[in-house]
Write a protein that binds this DNA or RNA. Structure first.
Lengths: 306, 306
DNA sequence: TATTAAAACGTCCAAACCGACCACACGAGT
DNA sequence: ACTCGTGTGGTCGGTTTGGACGTTTTAATA
């Protein structure tokens, strides 16, 4: 499985579920909540398992609210991101039913087992479809704007909730989009992905001159910078500005991750960077390698309940 | 750092609402008060659900006790928006301490007794101060960007929280900023103010062509439109476009509220509108007059905790 | 590699919650 | 007044929870 699981500790799960740590330990021991153990007997619960447990019909939907997820009527027979979910989200956004859209996104967060699946399998195709509808004239600008607004607010909500359960944020990452690019959704999704991995993220938003980003790098000395480029005003000046920025980043030993649909492959050949990715999975994988070795704690054996 | 998703036990809710524990259990079992269950069948009631129920059932004073129950935990000085609070928020934003900034804003929301006070007495002066620092060169662009980003996410959080407790949203309002204006904070604050009054708000975001806004008005038939104008690319074309938009709005009998620092008084003489305001208090007052009969016994603040 | 602070472990127990049952208060209708 | 029907608050035995305790593991130092 390419998608390695984020592992949570008992304290994190307890906070997320709104119960005490002892209770989590008891539930794990009773087999209600599956967990692996480190060699030193510490319990590790995968994010997907926590979400599965949270959404389990008969037991407790409490957790969902705490993860920022609301399932008034938790249908979720088998949570999985599919075409149907995409279609329903597109339709909800088209009609501006923001509450429904929020619920569908939360559902996608569970089904996609985290931020990466949500971004790559739900948000991206949905926005492509909406963008397509806009091109074709079947959607108006204001519908695309409203959809973006709903997505931004929901992703922001997820970020806040995830941040709350990630207690120890060690590594610092900076996210931004360059001057002239006013698309902030990609930056938010990147922030969500990294927050979920335990990064501390400073999102500088969109439309940021690269020379100011260079200053930020010098000021904050982050471990990495992720730059989402959805639109470029002037290619030549972008290359120049980026070159100056990368010089600083390189000097400060900062990893630079590029992304965005404006960076065509022939343009990329003129840029220097640590990695490029047009999927959040790429960002996640790149970021994981940068984390201290701790990212993959040694697990001993599978849980032996009862 | 408890928030609105804090889960309450039956005893807590019973005490706050001034009824017996058995009654709470019965209400939950009857479905009148939504609750989740732990694995061990213990009922957990989210604070937002408790507040909603309290308001619906007429226990208006009880809601305050619920909040008091929240505010008792975190240490809080006297809630009041003053120069000190502004200074501390500016400093937190300057240094990018987003967690502290969020706390201060929440505190300002309580202290300012709602969205209007928060907007006019805290956010506005703070952003002016930051903008000033940027002009003077003591702040860089990225700091202003980061500050804006933190404010956006926090205001978004507040909007979601307020929306959760306001279930019966009757009147529809549309908010937007015109093409070329990428400043979205004002629109968010407006959304927060109106949500607090019980409006249903569709925020179409910034950079929206006015002709598309006209389409949205025809599609949604709102009671009012609030347009925040912080930047105008071309004054003449703006006047033209706005004229076309207002024609539609007028035909649909939609009240148009204008705001924003780009609308100087000599420009305003060339525009037709229902009202202009450069403070959220103006928007709030204007909107209140538009609401149905409701004498709107507004609770002082649907405050959230820190 | 050795050291150290923070966090998780297992165990135990008081406090709180569960469901079921009962006593009481209140209003409406033969 | 009497008797329902209904909604409330309280009690009881059994179960679940959450915090305290000293010990062990982890992760980030030096």
């Amino acid at each position: 499985m390419a998608n390695r699981e984020t592992l949570l500790k008992t304290q994190q799960v307890a906070t997320a579920l709104g119960v005490g740590v002892s209770t989590i330990k008891r539930w794990v021991d009773a087999g209600e909540l599956k967990a692996t153990r480190t060699v030193g007997k510490h319990r590790l619960i995968s994010l997907s398992e926590a979400l599965r447990f949270a959404g389990k019909a008969g037991h407790s939907t409490a957790a969902l609210e705490l993860l920022g997820l609301e399932l008034a009527n938790p249908i979720l027979g088998m949570p999985h991101i599919d075409q149907d979910l995409c279609d329903r989200l597109v339709e909800a956004l088209r009609q501006g039913r923001s509450t429904d859209a929020r619920q569908l996104i939360h559902q996608g967060y569970i089904a996609g087992e985290g931020a990466v699946g949500l971004s790559d399998n739900l948000i991206r195709p949905v926005m492509e479809q909406i963008g397509h509808g806009w091109m074709m004239g079947s959607l108006d600008v204001f519908q695309e704007h409203e959809a973006t607004q709903v997505l931004i607010s929901t992703i922001t909500e997820l970020i806040i909730q995830v941040t709350k359960t990630q207690l120890d944020r060690n590594c610092l990452a900076i996210g931004a989009a360059p001057e002239g690019d006013h698309y902030s959704l990609a930056g938010l999704l990147g922030q969500l992905v990294l927050c979920e991995q335990g990064w501390e993220v400073r999102n500088l938003g969109s439309n940021l001159p690269l020379r100011s980003l260079a200053l930020a790098v010098e000021e904050y000395r982050p471990r990495m910078v992720f730059l989402s480029v959805s639109y470029i005003t002037d290619t030549d000046s972008f290359i120049t500005e980026y070159g100056l920025f990368y010089e600083v980043a390189s000097r400060m030993d900062v990893a630079v991750m590029l992304g965005g649909r404006a960076l065509w492959s022939d343009l990329r050949t003129k840029l220097v960077y640590a990695s490029f990715g047009d999927r959040m999975a790429h960002l996640a994988e790149f970021a994981r390698r940068l984390l201290p070795s701790s990212a993959s704690p040694r697990v001993a054996s599978q849980s032996s309940a009862i």
